[in-house]
């Protein structure tokens, strides 16, 4: 294991515990970990967006085209058109200069409009037509009856679906029969939310167990376990105690 990996393991243990110290209360250690996390991720994204997105998709074709690079001209014969997205990108910076700040709205309008337009077909297909078809169940079931694939369950799910859809009807007050059906729809949704909640909580617990294992169980990636975690607990606790004493010093009568 290299020195960098060993230092990385100790830092990972320290930052995990510093973030977890938020469970006690907001404190300088949490703030430090938060700022490091936010800063590192911002720097990482800047580098990633520059070298993985802007350079290969925009700057490299333009640069290669301008320098009559044979490979670029073969891969991007229409390289000059890339100047349009470049201009739109640069217009985003117009916000920094007040007299032309309004020009930054052009690329914004283009992106929102273009994506809204292109996503209509996909949304209508996946979120509407295919969903409608999937809801047209064969009430006799499609094979040997199971807990889900039997006439009662299929009829119940269709009934729940219709009731839930009626809940989302906004043009009429939910009163009388409509109100009853809408309320049944809410019950169906709440039951499904309950199931989903339990399922996700189980997933989160398994993540927490995984993180604890990575800190406490000795592996090739963490050969000194559980020492980084134990030292981290001591350091984080000591720093929080010092901070607590500093913000609320013992009164004159004490000690």
């Amino acid at each position: 294991m290299s020195t960098a990996e060993i230092v990385g393991t100790w830092l990972a243990a320290f930052f995990t515990l510093a973030i977890l110290s938020f469970l006690y209360k907001d404190n300088p250690l949490y703030k430090f970990a938060e700022h490091v996390f936010v800063g590192v991720s911002a720097g990482y994204q800047l580098v990633r967006q520059t070298f993985d997105v802007a350079w290969p998709n925009l700057l490299q074709p333009l640069w290669g085209g301008l320098h009559r690079d044979v490979d670029t001209l073969k891969a991007h014969p229409q390289w000059a058109f890339y100047s349009i997205p470049l201009a739109f990108g640069l217009l985003m910076f117009a916000r920094l200069w007040k007299p032309i700040a309004h020009l930054s709205r052009w690329p914004m309008s283009y992106i929102v409009g273009a994506f809204a337009g292109t996503s209509i077909i996909g949304a209508a297909s996946a979120d509407l037509v295919i969903q409608v078809q999937s809801s047209m169940v064969n009430l006799r079931g499609t094979g040997p009856w199971t807990l889900i694939d039997n006439p009662f369950s299929l009829a119940l799910s269709t009934f729940g679906l219709v009731c839930a859809l009626i809940y989302f009807f906004f043009s009429k007050e939910h009163k009388g029969a409509l109100g009853v059906v809408a309320r049944i729809g809410v019950y169906f949704m709440m039951v499904s939310f309950g199931g989903s909640f339990g399922f996700t909580v189980m997933g989160r617990l398994s993540l927490a167990v995984g993180r604890a294992q990575s800190l406490l169980v000795r592996t090739p990636l963490n050969p000194h376990a559980p020492w980084p975690a134990l030292v981290g607990v001591v350091v984080v606790t000591a720093l929080i105690v010092i901070w607590e004493r500093k913000i609320s010093p013992p009164s004159a009568g004490e000690g």
Binding site: V132, Q133, S135, M136, V137, N138, L139, R140, T158, L161, V162, L165, I166
Partner: peptide, 12 residues
């Protein structure tokens, strides 16, 4: 809702 109910009947 109408299409789903018709579809359930015809598909059954």
């Amino acid at each position: 809702i109408g299409l789903i109910l018709i579809g359930v009947v015809t598909h059954t």
